[in-house]
Nucleic acid binder design. Structure first.
Length: 556
DNA sequence: AAGTCATGTCGCC
DNA sequence: TGGCGACCCTGACT
């Protein structure tokens, strides 16, 4: 008589799975010529042929012969569409899409990410979308093949900080939401997290880092320095407050609180997003999750005027940016799928100068940093858009670039950032959502895109960083990029300037800092315990099913 | 090492 | 228009 074989599992390869209930005495019988029997059992039912209560899965066939071969024909089920005959998920370090769903990259049906024309192209994911105003002609191809290669490059070559110089693991206890470089002290990076904590890290000295936990009580969405006082920082948060904080003490002054009566449910709780300074007027601009813009007078430190509806009522305003040359010109973007341009001098209901339509939520809209004449937007329809002249035709973007930066509720929204040091105002930096198989490791690079051509200029990867990096900030003056990946921060430099000899000398590429569990007030992370250089220290784990090479640089 | 959980947007009814 | 549930590459922790 065969004994009942049970297996407690929920994802055996190729298996529909059945669980025991209240049974702690599971056992496996290997005498059945390697065949596995998966049975739904109940407490006390130990033998299949004796207990009529045993339920056999529909896909299991049981032969009551002497040898009692019990076979399984378990159908593979796609975790995405629940259909059979295919499976979505990682195969090694390569992700296989569900063929029944639209392409995860360009969102068009009929193909998957692997065969997507936007991915298969040499530009590898970041290529200009087909221009809707003019299909490609034969002349275009002639131009590309025969002429373009002979045109001398007039543009300066980009300097790409694509080598990790140093990093802080877990300075924050929740994912990083925003980054800002100190305006005058070049090696100081400020970071905000989902918990509302404010991190200050001097990456030049590595050890000097502080986390203030009492500035905000939930997501720190944006920060901006006072242009006339580089110790003072403005922050906006989903707790509904704008704070003005001395970064040397971490003591905040609340300039505005939209939830003075506390929590009365989500219908009334206001969250503040976007934050920018109008230096000439001494104005602070912030917006909320119901579509309203607020102005705060920086001198009197008080809100002024009435809130103005700038996006669809009830929809979140995600970002604000004043034009660098004409700060009266403001751009806002929001969940109503629009970016809108305003004149701060005459703000009224419906007075927007232009509205830029997008396929989905607009995560960010920034004027170009030098001339302010271009606009770069990031939308959740997996497209980066560039509008070339804010005084020109804004009905449609002058360029759309397909790029993977989808929405995921567990990730900080991706935002493409201008490189402020690029005199041609064409280089943009943005993290990539979908992974690429890099020598057997699934990694999510940070992409450097030439927005004038849509070409992927460079992609920054580091085998140790297996997490997605949605937050990236190019340094305003130096060839440095800061990125926030989950709870960690990294500093990237160009290969030739990254100081690897120095790193080897100090035997640590990375600095590990334990997050404080329940921080009240400032947290000083400078105790010796915070640093790990032990070769036995925990290695970074790859994601499920992804093959990750052992880390060397982390453990030097 | 499989399970758990945190929790934003969108589409559908 | 509003409430509800599905959800495609998460990541850290148990």
């Amino acid at each position: 008589m065969p004994s009942l074989t049970r297996r407690r599992s929920s994802a055996s390869p190729g298996g529909v799975i059945v669980h025991d209930e209240e049974d702690t005495s599971s056992s496996e019988d290997e005498s059945l010529d390697g065949e596995v029997v998966v049975v739904t059992g109940r407490k006390g039912s130990t033998r299949l042929d004796e207990d009529p209560r045993v339920e056999v899965d529909a896909t299991v066939s049981v032969k009551k012969t002497k040898a009692a071969p019990i076979t399984l024909s378990l159908k593979k089920v796609c975790k995405v569409c629940k259909g059979t005959g295919h499976e979505a998920g990682f195969r090694g370090a390569t992700y296989i899409d569900c063929p029944k769903k639209p392409c995860f990259l360009c969102k068009m049906p009929g193909h998957t990410t692997i065969s997507c024309p936007h991915r298969a192209a040499v530009e590898n994911g970041a290529v200009p979308a087909r221009d809707s105003r003019g299909a490609q002609t034969h002349l275009d191809y002639v131009f590309k093949r025969q002429l373009r290669a002979k045109i001398p490059v007039l543009k300066q070559s980009f300097v790409i900080p694509d080598q990790v110089d140093c990093g802080v693991i877990k300075l924050h206890s929740r994912r990083v939401t925003c980054l800002e470089f100190h305006p005058t002290k070049s090696s100081i990076l400020l970071s905000g997290d989902k918990k509302g904590q404010l991190g200050i890290w001097d990456y030049g000295k590595l050890h000097e880092k502080t986390v203030y936990g009492s500035v905000h009580s939930c997501i720190l969405n944006n920060m901006k320095f006072n242009p006339s006082n580089d110790v003072m920082l403005y922050t906006s948060s989903s707790d509904g407050t704008v704070c003005y904080t001395d970064i040397e003490t971490g003591i905040p002054l609340i300039l505005m609180d939209l939830n003075p009566n506390g929590w009365n449910g989500p219908a009334s709780w206001r969250m503040l997003y976007g934050l920018d300074v109008h230096p000439e007027k001494g104005l602070l601009l912030v917006a909320d999750n119901f579509g309203y813009l607020y102005l705060v007078d920086m001198r009197s430190q008080n809100p002024i005027g009435e809130p103005l509806l700038i996006h669809r009522k009830g929809s979140k305003v995600v970002g604000l940016h004043c034009n660098p040359l004409q700060p009266d010109i403001l751009i806002s973007c929001g969940n109503d799928h629009f970016a809108r341009i305003w004149d701060v001098r005459r703000l009224e209901d419906g007075s927007s100068l232009a509205h830029l339509a997008h396929g989905r939520v607009v995560n960010s809209a920034y004027f170009s940093p030098l001339s302010g004449s271009k606009i770069l937007t990031t939308s959740q329809d997996n497209r980066i858009r560039v509008w070339d002249s804010i005084f020109g035709n804004l009905e449609s973007p002058s360029r759309e670039i397909v790029h993977s930066h989808d929405f995921n509720r567990h990730l900080t929204p991706f935002k493409a950032e201008w490189d402020p040091k690029d005199p041609s105002e064409s280089l943009a930096v943005i993290g990539r959502y979908i992974s690429e198989n890099y020598d057997g490791v699934a990694l999510h690079p940070i992409d450097f895109i030439d927005t004038t051509t849509g070409q992927l200029v460079a992609e920054a990867i580091q085998p140790d960083i297996t997490t997605i990096s949605p937050v990236n900030k190019p340094h305003p003056r130096e060839d440095i990029l800061a990125s926030g990946s989950s709870r960690s921060l990294f500093i990237w430099k160009p290969k030739e300037t990254a100081d690897f000899d120095e790193q080897r000398k100090r035997k640590s590429d990375f600095v590990f800092v334990r997050p404080e569990k329940d921080s009240k007030g400032g947290m000083d992370c400078d105790s010796d315990d915070d640093f790990v250089s032990d070769p036995k220290a925990k290695k970074p784990k790859g994601h499920k099913g992804r093959k990750v090479k052992p880390s060397v640089s982390l453990l030097l």
